[in-house]
């Protein structure tokens, strides 16, 4: 029962990501796209963790952690590029 509910949750997370992609496609400014990509990142992290539970392979938890850190650094680089015109 728990597994069926979790598969339904993964389906819902995919739908949420598709709606965020719709916002990222039609966003009038760049920052709308940054916001939408941030939301997609969070959904991907949750999906990775749910599949870690469903497969009983707990190494994916580390993958999710590294994914969070990488997405944070990427967002920081994009915002610094938008603010100052260069990254380094």
């Amino acid at each position: 029962m728990v597994e069926i509910a979790l598969y339904a949750l993964v389906f819902g997370l995919i739908i949420i990501s598709l709606l965020s992609i719709a916002r990222a496609y039609s966003g009038p400014t760049v920052l709308d796209r940054v916001v939408a990509m941030n939301m997609i990142t969070t959904n991907v992290v949750l999906t990775i963790l749910i599949f870690a539970y469903l497969d009983n392979s707990f190494y994916y938890v580390d993958v999710a952690f590294v994914f969070v850190l990488g997405a944070f650094i990427g967002t920081l680089c994009i915002l610094k590029l938008l603010r100052e015109g260069h990254i380094l």
Binding site: N38, V61, L69, F72, T75, L76, R83
Partner: peptide, 25 residues
């Protein structure tokens, strides 16, 4: 413990990113 660490990371990262997006905009 790892999940708690991820929750703490997201709870600190999301406000920082939101603040930076507002400042950039």
């Amino acid at each position: 413990t790892k999940l708690l660490l991820i929750a703490a990371m997201i709870a600190t990262i999301n406000p920082v990113v939101t603040h930076l997006i507002a400042k950039t905009a």
